[in-house]
Design a protein around this nucleic acid. Structure first.
Lengths: 183, 183, 183, 183
DNA sequence: GATGAATGAGGCTTCATTCAT
DNA sequence: AATGAATGAAGCCTCATTCAT
């Protein structure tokens, strides 16, 4: 996975993959039909823990929706945006069009589920009166957009201009939930 | 460009590039040192018209900031997100980490300029009382995030779930500028 | 080696080398970094047996220096000048300037050692009164020059005018040791 | 010629030849059928001035043969061995086997003539009593061998061990003509 | 099951040669 | 006659894949 992240599908050498995995090159072929199968299965199996990591956040009972979203974002930013896992997202963006299966899987397992979860949260927020913008439930993408942007930013531009993803996201939430009063 | 977009840097064959360009393979080397130089210069020269296209929108005199941003977004979505140019953005995201020069150039020519422009608009919106969230000026990324997300969505998931980028962006603007009253 | 001798470095195709070696092209790269490394190592490893072949002559105990030199020359002419090994020498002459490493190695392993050996012989000859020209020890090159010339001659001109290298060398030795009286 | 000397036939680019000649690449083909023809004719035309340069030595009337040979060698060493022209000789040695026409021409125009001239000198030396070794006339190669060796040495090994070609040749002549008494 | 040496197709790049201007 | 842009064949090298051990 690290190799694919660092170089992309085409530029990754199975030699390096094998070396890093501590096995011989031929061994890879005992488990995967070819390089494509390896890549697709790797993405698949790497995404599962990523999703787990995110959904593992103990669902804060009775919390405000804002706190839930904020906690969720904090985990995402810390565990994904600021680690190698973020590059996994970028890898899917990069190779998706050439690996429809990968894009499909990613949509099914991550995107649609994630958005469904967000939509549920938004609706709860609307119901609880925390969120006034009812239309937001139709586009949960808006809620997560800055987090995705943060992931991409880290990979590409953190060298030029570091980005405080948590702070950005808090300000984004202020737009949705209204500005917090200083306590 | 089309070849690189369709396959990424490593998987693109110069044979195909030449064929599509209607020249012989060797001819490429009369203009570019090697495949990398070709790629980097192509990105560079392809980004310029993209930026032009965006900044060419006649600056609406005396318009509300919301109208300006909305007009801007409409052009972006129509001219970038819904065309091949969007894949150019995805290509930069995909190959950026392996081509620091490309990422640098993109940051300098597109990202930093674009964000500066957005920040100016946001400040004007704050001054005119259209935008209440003063902190937004610190993270103009929030303003454009849904547009970027739309670009990526089109490449990867439009097959599974088409996305009305304009509508999504309007709702995003409602968060920032307040909901429009039905006229 | 045969391919390089027949065509020189630049004109030799690795395809042909592989074919003659009975392996696939890629196999070469399991053993040598590139064509240059192959060439340099081949020269190196080919020179060793050449030197061995020459120094393997059982050192004739108590013989006259002239007999020693003459025996030595006979072996050299028979084993080098009149075989493919001579072309190896010509190859070094031909490619040396473009492969300083090769020239260095050849100087170190063959030339300087060979000349040192010859100088020792010459000094012994002077000590024994066989050689009158004391200055010869300063330029052992003079002693071996006709042998080298013979090597080159065989490669280039034997077609036009065959050369009896042994006879030539004997006459050369007559200059150095004085003419032999017919026994 | 300089290009061919520096790189050998195969590695020389016509681009560079044209550039150095101050003409366009296509112009070469107005004068020479192809690269081989260019090479062969260049060798031919470059050898002529080399021979002229050598035979231009004013034939010292009534001089001793030793003086004639020594003068001749001095010119050769100064004009050939210690200049780029020496590399021309090396070039012929290097490429000769692949360009029989070149080797033929060189043999005809340089080698056989040169040896004939040397033979005549040797015979004169014998007649005048300067040279005692009558057999030398059968192998004039012996006379010139150290000069040829000097040429090769300069190209390959002068970096490691500079060689005083004139001094070496004088000592060689001492073998042939007898040692000079200190005057 | 694991290995890794061997394979050879395929891609990048060079450069002799051509030919329209 | 001279040019030099264009060509495309050919060569070096890589690397996914195989298979005897």
């Amino acid at each position: 996975m690290d190799e694919f992240i660092a170089r992309g599908f085409a530029a990754t050498r199975l030699d390096d993959v094998a070396k890093r995995a501590g096995v011989a090159k031929g061994t890879i072929y005992l488990h995967f039909k070819d390089k494509e199968a390896l890549f697709e299965e790797l993405i698949r199996t790497a995404i599962v823990p990523l999703v787990s990591r995110l959904t593992a956040t103990p669902p804060p009972v009775d919390a405000s929706v804002r706190d839930m979203v904020e906690g969720f974002a904090r985990v995402f930013i810390q565990e994904v945006a600021e680690t190698r896992r973020g590059d996994l997202v970028r890898l899917v963006v990069a190779e998706g069009p050439r690996f429809p299966e990968v894009a499909d899987f990613y949509y099914r397992e991550v995107v649609s589920r994630g958005l469904a979860g967000m939509r549920a949260l938004i609706e709860r927020g609307i119901a609880r009166g925390e969120i006034r913008q009812k239309n937001l439930a139709r586009y949960p993408q808006i809620l997560v957009a800055p987090a995705i942007i943060a992931v991409i930013w880290q990979s590409l531009f953190s060298r030029h201009a570091p980005l405080d993803a948590n702070e950005m996201f808090r300000i984004h939430l202020d737009l949705i939930f209204g500005e917090r009063r200083p306590t």
